[in-house]
């Protein structure tokens, strides 16, 4: 394997560069996916049938906690990648662990929020609105959950294999994924929750 030392570790081999470009294109597809989910949410927002509407169920507390957790995790994974660039393995691992813990907190709060909705009579089957809401939030939440598993595998590899071109590449790609989920959350925050609560 040819390693180009003038590049950062995650870009240092040909396959690494292909992986990163491929992942960017994958994120392009993810944007199309979430755009479709947002579009259906906007179209079905008023289709509440006999169930409650968005303003009636959204709560500011859980929203703020979720937002805080996810935005902070995006910051810590940024620090993790920075540490990786400096070649500091332990710091990298620690920042990744913090990131995943914050992500875990986010998922926990989201599950709590869903149970609250169900208590208020808003389930997946209630109306067009509820189906679209749960699907949009659920798809994002499922992405975060998937990220938790994926991230754990990467941390394990960082611990056992150290910072190699391969693990660095995986960590970097994972950070792209995590930042992307953060961006999607900002859209959910503004166009689902804020729009619904105003």
């Amino acid at each position: 394997m040819k390693v180009d030392h003038s590049q950062p570790l995650e870009y240092s081999t040909e396959q690494n560069r292909l992986n990163i470009l491929g992942f960017w294109i994958f994120l392009g597809a993810e944007i199309a996916l979430f755009a479709t989910l947002f579009a259906s949410y906007f179209l079905l927002r008023n289709g509440t049938g006999s169930g409650p509407s968005d303003g009636e169920v959204f709560v500011i507390d859980t929203l703020m906690i979720q937002t805080f957790l996810l935005l902070t995790s995006s910051f810590t994974i940024g620090l993790g990648v920075h540490a990786m660039r400096l070649g500091r393995k332990t710091a990298t691992i620690n920042f990744f662990i913090v990131t995943l813990l914050l992500g875990l907190g986010f998922v926990g709060v989201e599950i709590y929020e869903f149970t609250q909705y169900i208590d208020e009579g808003l389930t997946l089957q209630t109306s067009g609105f509820s189906s679209a809401l749960f699907t949009l939030l659920g798809t994002h939440g499922a992405h975060v959950t998937f990220g938790l598993f994926w991230g754990s595998f990467i941390i394990y590899q960082l611990i056992t294999r150290g910072l190699t071109p391969e693990t660095a590449n995986k960590s970097f790609i994972f950070s792209l994924y995590w930042h992307f989920l953060d961006v999607v959350w900002i859209f959910i925050f503004s166009f689902v929750y804020l729009k619904g609560m105003i």
Partner: peptide, 13 residues
Amino acid sequence: QEMNDSMEDSMEN
């Protein structure tokens, strides 16, 4: 109308 608008939005994204 809204439907078509937001469809176009989603396409631009």
